[in-house]
Amino acid sequence: MAGKIRLEDRECPLSTTLQHVGEWWTLLLLHDAFDGFTRFDQFQANLGISSSMLTSRLKSLVADGLLERRRYQENPPRHEYVLTELGRSLRPVIVTLAAWGNNRLRPEGRSMILVDAESGAEVDPVVVDRTTGHPLDDAEAYVFTAGPAASEAMRARYVGAGSSHAPGAARVG
């Protein structure tokens, strides 16, 4: 995925994130890892992915620090792939993507739902500001703006951001 990022997007967190997790199999492998899968044969059997593609994706996830490769058997040598702290931090993203997909389906058309582990009640995840607890789905209340490391091009893109009515304010959502 490294070759797909445009030069002007190298500082954009969306572009750099997609460089790591924007490939189809990557998100599915991470989903399986969150469900407790750790071994090559488990991933392969569940996803029906070719050995070469699975090897490539697992190597990328290890190189990106999202999975750790650990030996669990000496003879013959066998490895498992365990989520790192960085990998585990993607869980809310995967949960939110799944919820977004489910929200476009009728309840009887959903093949997987998120539930409270204790009560079994279906939950409806939302993304909120950690400080205020307010949902971030309000495109008028939350906008992107240039950060401290922004280039001149990025600063120009967000001139006036911070006011929801300012030209150049990029809406979140």
Rank of each mutant, 00 (worst) to 15 (best):
A121Q: 14
H165L: 12
Q19C: 04
W100L: 15
G48L: 04
V82K: 00
L83H: 08
T17D: 10
W24H: 13
L105F: 07
E8L: 07
L114M: 15
A98C: 02
S50Y: 01
D64A: 12
R104D: 11
K4D: 15
D129L: 00
A99Y: 02
A117T: 10
Y158V: 02
L18S: 06
W25I: 02
R106Y: 12
A169Y: 04
H134R: 09
Y142N: 01
R78M: 07
V126M: 11
G101E: 15
A139M: 09
L29T: 10
S163T: 01
W24F: 14
G162K: 00
E8I: 10
R130Y: 10
L136M: 12
P125G: 07
L28N: 05
S89D: 04
M112L: 12
A63M: 05
E122P: 13
D32G: 06
G173K: 04
E11Q: 02
L105G: 10
S50H: 05
E152K: 10
N75C: 07
D35E: 14
M154K: 03
S15A: 15
I49D: 10
I49G: 08
D116Y: 04
F40A: 02
R110W: 09
L30C: 00
T145K: 04
S111G: 15
M53D: 14
E80D: 14
T17R: 08
I5D: 06
E122R: 12
L83F: 06
T145S: 04
D137G: 09
A170P: 03
P167W: 05
Q73H: 15
D64H: 13
G48W: 08
E8D: 11
K59D: 15
D129I: 05
G133S: 09
G22K: 01
Y72F: 15
A170T: 03
Y158N: 07
K4G: 14
A63K: 09
M53W: 08
E68A: 14
G133I: 03
L90A: 05
N103D: 13
S119C: 05
A33Q: 00
L136K: 03
P148R: 10
L83G: 05
R110G: 04
D32A: 11
F37S: 14
N46F: 03
E68D: 13
A161C: 06
G22C: 04
L83I: 07
Q42S: 15
Q73M: 10
T17F: 09
F144R: 02
G65W: 06
E8R: 08
F43S: 03
V127W: 01
F40Y: 14
R71M: 14
V95K: 05
S163D: 12
R91K: 13
V21A: 02
M53R: 05
L114F: 08
A121K: 08
L97R: 07
R39V: 11
T17W: 06
L7G: 10
A45I: 01
S60P: 08
E74F: 05
D129M: 05
P167H: 04
L105R: 09
D129H: 06
D35V: 11
R6G: 11
Q73K: 09
P148E: 13
D124M: 12
V21S: 00
R104V: 14
F37Q: 08
